[in-house]
Amino acid sequence: MTMAYKNVIHGLQKDEGTKENLFALVFEQGMSTNAASIKLAIPRSTAYSWVKKEKEQRSAAIEASEIARQTAQAAAAENLKVNLFALVFEQGMSTNAAAFGLGIPPSTAYSWINKEKERRDFTGEASSKTAREISKEDLKENLFAMVFDQGLSTNASAIQLGMPPSTAYNWIKKEKERRDITGEASSKTAQEISKDDLKKNLFALVFEQGMSTNASAIQLGMPPSTAYNWINQERERQSVTAEVTKETVQETVKETLKDNAEETVHETAREISKETSVETSVETSVESEEASTKDADSVYRVTFKL
């Protein structure tokens, strides 16, 4: 290796070390290019040239990184869209529930769903009954079975089925109206029967076994708010019943005392009447005897005179 080549290599290594020091001063410590060139004892023009090239390289690297990030985001978004569309259009899940499950903002999910609906309408994919509509019917049947047959509340059913409570309440309201029109609700429904059984179980746990309302609601798989409402109503009913019973007992006691008092008065009157009758009979007998004696005396005196 010639001396000249060694000098070139040494010069390049020195330049690289100087560049690193320059970049550290400018990009990391925030020193100006001019001040850094003075501190490192290198020509100002050289420092500016190195810093300019480094800025261009770093900018290109940042841009490439941003492109890669955006590409990855777009790919992830596409995957999310595919999963979202599958959940909503194929499995019949609500947009809100699907967005929650996939961890994406509901507003973004609704925007994607609306655009996809428009696209499918335009391409004719929604001309016939879709899998989502079929799944929607299944969801309705499950909801109606839980509410009308099993007696579960609409809110609890909606949560269990992973659908918006507002949608569930709307479907239940329309179904109730339909059943009222068709006469299906003319007699006591299975839901009402199941509801009565649920109430009986709740009252037994709370009033007989002493369990708290909240614990009883959890054990029976029902909303605590419904349980508290039923318990409060039952307590009010029991309070009213107890008050009515108390008043009835008081009235019965009063009537009994009154009847007993009247009977006592009547009995006393009868006793007095009997005693009065006896005294009157005695007096009459005495008077009769006295009259008889007087008559006998008169007869005796007349006889004696004769």
Score class of each variant (00 low, 15 high):
Met1Asn: 10
Thr2Phe: 10
Met3Ile: 10
Tyr5Lys: 13
Asn7Arg: 14
His10Phe: 13
Gly11Tyr: 08
Lys14His: 10
Thr18Ala: 14
Glu20Pro: 01
Leu22Lys: 00
Val26Trp: 10
Val26Gly: 02
Phe27Asp: 02
Phe27Gln: 01
Glu28Cys: 01
Gly30Thr: 03
Thr33Leu: 12
Asn34Glu: 08
Ala35Cys: 07
Ile38Tyr: 08
Lys39Trp: 03
Lys39His: 12
Lys39Asp: 09
Ile42Trp: 03
Pro43Lys: 10
Arg44Ser: 06
Arg44Leu: 02
Ser45Asp: 12
Tyr48Pro: 00
Tyr48Asp: 05
Ser49Arg: 14
Lys52Gly: 02
Lys52Ser: 09
Lys53Pro: 00
Lys53Met: 07
Glu56Thr: 09
Gln57Ala: 15
Ala60Arg: 13
Ala61Gly: 09
Ala61Ile: 13
Glu63Trp: 09
Ala64His: 10
Ala64Ser: 15
Ile67Val: 15
Ala68Gly: 10
Ala72Lys: 10
Gln73Thr: 06
Ala75Asp: 14
Glu78Val: 06
Glu78Phe: 06
Lys81His: 05
Ala86Phe: 02
Thr95Phe: 02
Gly103Phe: 05
Ser111Val: 06
Glu118Ser: 04
Arg119His: 04
Arg120Tyr: 03
Thr123Lys: 06
Ala126Arg: 13
Ala126Met: 12
Ser127Val: 13
Ser127Asn: 13
Lys129Leu: 14
Ala131Asp: 06
Glu137Leu: 11
Glu137Tyr: 08
Lys140Met: 09
Asn142Pro: 01
Leu143Met: 06
Asn155Phe: 01
Ala156Ile: 01
Ser157Phe: 00
Leu161Val: 01
Leu161Asp: 00
Leu161Ile: 00
Ser166Tyr: 04
Thr167Phe: 00
Trp171Ala: 01
Trp171Asn: 00
Lys174Leu: 10
Lys174Met: 11
Lys176Gln: 03
Lys176Pro: 01
Arg178Tyr: 03
Gly183Thr: 09
Ala185Arg: 06
Gln191Leu: 03
Ser194Phe: 03
Lys195Arg: 09
Lys195Ala: 05
Leu198Asp: 00
Lys199Ala: 12
Lys200Asp: 15
Lys200Gly: 15
Leu202His: 00
Leu202Gly: 04
Phe203Asn: 04
Phe203Gln: 05
Glu208Leu: 08
Met211His: 09
Met211Lys: 07
Met211Val: 14
Ser212Tyr: 11
Thr213Ser: 14
Asn214Glu: 11
Ala215Ser: 15
Ile218Asp: 05
Ile218Tyr: 06
Ile218Phe: 09
Met222Ser: 01
Trp230Glu: 02
Glu236Val: 12
Arg237Thr: 11
Val240Phe: 05
Thr241Leu: 09
Glu243Arg: 15
Thr245Val: 08
Lys246His: 12
Val249Phe: 08
Lys254Cys: 11
Asp259Leu: 14
Asp259Gly: 14
Ala261His: 13
Glu263Pro: 00
Val265Asn: 02
Thr268Ala: 11
Ala269Leu: 11
Arg270Ser: 04
Ser273Met: 09
Ser273Cys: 07
Thr276Leu: 14
Thr276Glu: 15
Thr276Asn: 13
Ser277Lys: 07
Val278Gln: 12
Glu279Arg: 12
Thr280Phe: 03
Glu283Lys: 11
Glu283Thr: 07
Glu287Gly: 13
Ser288Trp: 04
Ala291Pro: 02
Ser292Pro: 02
Lys294Asn: 06
Val299Leu: 03
Leu306Val: 06
